[in-house]
Design a protein around this nucleic acid. Structure first.
Length: 193
DNA sequence: CCGAAAGAATTCCTTTGGCC
DNA sequence: GGCCAAAGGAATTCTTTCGG
């Protein structure tokens, strides 16, 4: 099967970008573009489609790092959603109803995302991706842990407040009782030397 | 709000190799 | 040898993000 080969100028024209952009993307996204006998790049239809997809993602606002992840994730259909979910994690925090539902749902999303990412990384057996994924996961874990721990801290603080309040009330009640007893003792007051 | 820093994209320049 | 196309790297510009 002889595939049609395009020169960089042709490919650039087809993708509707400049040739240096193709070289730049190739380098930044760690793409493998075949070379001919002269060492010149040549592009197949698949390559061009890939670059078209990259351009589309760029236009949707994805950064090259994210696109790199998408590409090495095998162009999964749900990959953009994964990234979008990561990017939107902050505002999403404010829209949920109760704390319990919030935490449960977040943990589920977190677990789901972790599973998807790790699955992708293993499937690809790609070290570079592994590094990228670990960085992504690390950041996400830190954020999540920070958020959950802060919530936990607040809950604990609230508990301590209540406990403190109870102790105060208890002491107050006890104090009144003792005062009563004291007064009783005073009333009783036996003769002393 | 502004400046610094970082990332992305572009421009410019030099070198190389094929072809006439 | 001159021309053209392409590679590659350095420098520059533009855009976005972040901290004070």
């Amino acid at each position: 099967m002889d595939k049609q080969r395009y020169m960089i100028s042709d490919a650039a024209a087809l993708v509707n970008v400049e040739s240096h952009v193709l070289r730049y993307w190739e380098e930044e996204l760690e793409l493998t573009v075949p070379r001919n006998e002269m060492g010149h790049r040549y592009y197949t239809k698949e390559n061009i489609e890939q670059f078209m997809k990259i351009k589309e993602w760029k236009e949707q606002g994805y950064q090259l790092k994210a696109i790199k992840l998408l590409i090495h994730n095998g162009g999964r259909e749900d990959a953009p959603e994964l990234l979008a979910a990561t990017a939107a994690s902050e505002p999403a925090k404010q829209t949920l109803s109760t704390e319990v539902e919030d935490n449960t749902r977040r943990m589920e999303q977190f677990q789901h995302m972790m599973a998807q990412i790790v699955k992708g990384a293993i499937a690809e057996n790609n070290h570079a991706l592994g590094k990228e994924v670990s960085e992504l996961v690390r950041d996400y874990v830190l954020k999540e842990m920070n958020y959950l721990m802060r919530e936990q801290d607040e809950a604990e603080e609230e508990r301590y407040k209540k406990l403190d309040e109870l102790i105060r009330q208890s002491l107050k009640a006890k104090g009144k009782k003792e005062k009563k007893l004291f007064h009783k003792k005073q009333e009783w007051k036996p003769n002393e030397a």
